[in-house]
Amino acid sequence: MRELPLINREQQVLDRIERARRRRPTVREERITLAHGAGGKATHTLIDAVFLEEFRNPLLEPLEDGARFAVDGARLAFTTDSYVVSPLFFPGGDIGDLAVNGTVNDLAVCGARPLYLSAGFILEEGFPVADLRRIAASMARAAAAAGVAIVTGDTKVVGRGKGDGCYITTAGVGVVEREGAFSAAAARPDDVVLVSGPVGEHGVTVMLARGELDISSDVTSDTAALHGLVAALLDATDGVRCLRDATRGGVATVLNEIAAASGTAVIVREEAIPVRRDVRGACELLGIDPLYVACEGRLVAVVDGAEADVALAAMRAHPLGAGAAVIGRVAEDPPGLVLLKTAFGGTRIVDMLVGDPLPRIC
C-alpha cells in the first residue's frame, strides 16, 4: 500500500493556528479599555476579533512585527507603529527617538535593513513649539544614527484637551537582503531562547518619570536601534528561527506568542533572565514581574540549539548585546505554554499579560 507523504511540522503548526483563528475570538467588552493597548491578552483578542477578521490576507495573518513581500524581484519589509508615551521626555530618551528606534527595530526583526520612515504628528492645541522642536531634533539624531531618512509625513492638530500633547505615528520600509523568513511559528524543540540584555528598563524608567511614585532610581530607558545587532547575529549564524523586540507586554508576551504560533513549549530559567538590580527592586516594590515590563532596546531570539554558543558570542560582541544571555529552551510539551523554572526549584506558568499594569509606556 502506498504511504501518504508526511506533512512537515511547520505545516502542522500553521494548520493549528488557522483552525484556532477560525474559532472567531470575540471582544467581550463593549468599549475599548487601556488594557486593549497594553500588548497582552486583550490586545491580541482585539487584533484577532476586529482587525484580522476584517483585513485578513496572507501578509497580515502571520502577525509578525512587519510584513515581508516582493515587488519586481526586490524583497521588502514594511511596518507601522504609534507612540503615545507619557511623559514625552524621560531619562534616556523621549517620544521622538522612541518613534524612530521602535520602527527601525520592527524592520530589523523582520530581517530587513531599514531605509526610509514616515512620521505623522497629532498635536494638541497649545502644545509648546519648543517641545515640538526638541522632539523633531531627537528624531533627526536617531534617524541619522540608524542610517535611515524620514522622507514623508503629516501633521494634524486637535482641540485643547483632546490629544495629551503629542502623538506620533511612524511607518518604515526596508530591504530584505538575506535568505530565510523569521517567524514565531518557526521555533522547534531543542532551540534556545536568548535575550539581548537586561529587561524592563524602559517600562520602569517611564513609570518612575511619571512622578506618581516616591521612588528614586538612576535607571534610564534602553531605547536603541537594534538593526546593527541583528546584522551581527545573522552574519554569525544561519540558525536564527525567530526575532522579536520585547516592547508592550515585555519578554513574557513575546515568549507566549512564540509558544502559541509554533505549537511548542518555551521553558525559561528565572536565574538566567538578566534584570538590573534597581529595576528588580522597583518591580518588587510595585508587585510587577520584570518579564512583563516593556523594553525598547532589547530583542528576543530563538536560535537552533546547535548554534547557541555562536549566537550568544555574536550578540555579546556588539555594544547593544553585551548583556545577552540564554534564558531558556524550546520543548515539545506542553504545547502552547511558557513555563518558568524558579530559583527555588519550582515551576510556574508564565501567561500572556492580563490588564494594563504600566499604561502609556510607548
Rank of each mutant, 00 (worst) to 15 (best):
A186I: 04
A343S: 12
A77K: 08
A149C: 04
A311W: 08
G102S: 14
R141Q: 11
V193C: 06
L213R: 15
Y167E: 11
H318W: 01
A311P: 05
E3G: 01
V175T: 03
V350E: 11
P198W: 13
R134I: 02
L115A: 11
A225W: 09
T223M: 08
E296A: 15
P91E: 11
T205F: 15
A181E: 15
A314R: 07
L60W: 10
D190G: 04
S82F: 10
R277Y: 14
G200N: 08
D235E: 12
V266L: 10
A306E: 15
A314E: 03
P359A: 02
T33Q: 06
L63E: 12
P334I: 09
E177F: 02
A149H: 06
G263H: 01
V13P: 00
L34W: 01
V173C: 06
V148F: 03
E61H: 07
S138D: 04
F127P: 01
V303Y: 14
G40P: 06
I273Y: 13
G147N: 05
G239Q: 10
T45R: 05
L285I: 00
E177K: 06
I47N: 01
A137L: 02
D154F: 10
G287C: 02
V330P: 08
A184T: 12
L46R: 00
F78L: 15
N8L: 02
A324T: 10
V302P: 05
C295G: 14
V275D: 11
A171S: 15
V310T: 09
V350C: 10
A112F: 11
L312K: 07
A74D: 06
R188T: 07
L6K: 12
G180L: 06
A231N: 12
E53G: 01
L4F: 01
E271C: 01
F78I: 15
E271S: 14
H227S: 12
